[in-house]
């Protein structure tokens, strides 16, 4: 049985060949990281950021929303796994799906804000993330661990967590790949470009936006859960750190929103750059990274992949 479906368009054949080749190479590489004794922590976070940036791309690149409070899903996912494991004695593998569900529930609670657009949506989303953090901070200490947070004790298993993170990344990329070629993906893009016109073309805009929003919320919540397991500790300070949103946005924008490869390449380049700068200039890490980001935005405002496709529009059909 052929790996690729029967495709009448040669461009589609190239597209899916690239998907299988790049995806396969990435999977083999990541799968071999613990086996070959490479830096597990670095690659764990690389996969985490690829997933976060790719899921953010659904919200921003596909749907046109810029949620400045994106960390809320991540933080709620982290606390869901931690509370279920520590307080309800759930096995980690059973607790993790609940993190995703918690992300979906939070997305539904935030759904009324999808009526807003542009900067107003971004600011409200930031405020809601702050509210989430306050709510969890002020919950009884016996549930969330108060200012000390929750420690998962003997549950830590970095290599297992690494492979679960890999599975989450592969699932996220597969869903986004499907979405980008699906009717829902086209409806989302039309809504992003002109919501009123899309509605007059028969698109149920609120419903389509909600679907995109749910996809964008599910994966960061899972990432939060897996990271809680990996680091073995969760507290509100780190789980709801705005730097998580900032990095997600920067990595996605650096690669180029609206494509699948953009956030992947953006994450690879920026995480690698971050690591390099941190090693060479540990005290000036954030300053230099900030300057690098400014340079990137100034010289490649559409991101790496976006700029390439701008210059070579004929490649658009082939690049995932």
């Amino acid at each position: 049985m052929p790996i690729l479906p029967r495709l009448r368009d040669p461009a589609d054949r190239i597209y899916y060949t690239l998907v299988v080749a790049i995806g396969g190479a990435l999977m083999i590489y990541f799968a071999l990281v613990p086996v070959l004794g490479l830096n597990v922590a670095f690659h764990f976070y690389l996969m985490l950021w690829i997933t976060m940036a790719s899921a953010f791309n659904v919200s921003s690149g596909f749907s046109g929303y810029l949620p400045f409070g994106y960390v809320a899903f991540y933080g709620v996912g982290a606390f869901t796994t931690a509370i279920l494991v520590k307080k309800a004695a759930f096995p980690v593998f059973l607790a993790l799906p609940f993190s995703g569900v918690a992300g979906l529930v939070l997305a539904l609670l935030f759904a009324p804000t999808l009526r807003l657009s542009g900067i107003y949506f971004g600011i409200v989303s930031l405020a809601l993330a702050g509210i989430c953090r306050l709510v969890i901070t002020n919950m009884p200490e016996e549930i969330t661990g108060g200012s000390f947070g929750l420690q998962l004790g003997s549950r830590a298993h970095p290599v297992q967590a690494f492979y679960v993170m890999m599975a989450v990344m592969v699932a996220a990329l597969a869903v986004i790949l499907w979405l980008s070629r699906s009717r829902l993906g086209k409806a989302l893009r039309a809504t992003r470009d002109d919501a009123e016109a899309a509605e007059m073309m028969g698109i149920n805009v609120p419903r389509v936006r909600l679907y995109g929003w749910l996809v964008a919320a599910f994966f960061p919540a899972l990432c939060g859960g897996v990271e809680a397991w990996y680091t073995n500790v969760v507290d509100t300070e780190t789980a709801f750190n705005t730097l998580t949103t900032a990095k997600t946005v920067i990595y996605a924008v650096a690669g180029g929103l609206g494509t699948i490869t953009g956030p992947i390449i953006g994450s690879v380049v920026m995480v690698w750059l971050d690591e390099l700068i941190w090693r060479q200039f540990p005290l000036l890490n954030l300053l230099i990274l900030g300057l690098a980001t400014i340079a990137l935005v100034l010289f490649l405002p559409r991101g790496i992949v976006g700029t390439i496709l701008r210059r070579k529009p004929q490649w658009r059909r082939y690049v995932p």
């Binding site: 039309a190 002109d194 016109a197 658009r316």
Partner: peptide
């Protein structure tokens, strides 16, 4: 079906995809 005084095409979508939008359902 309608058109607009100032064209309201889906700017960052291909022409083919623009045409598919009204028939996605």
């Amino acid at each position: 079906g309608r058109t607009f005084q100032v064209p309201r095409v889906f700017r960052k979508m291909s022409l083919i995809d623009n045409l598919l939008v009204p028939v996605l359902d």
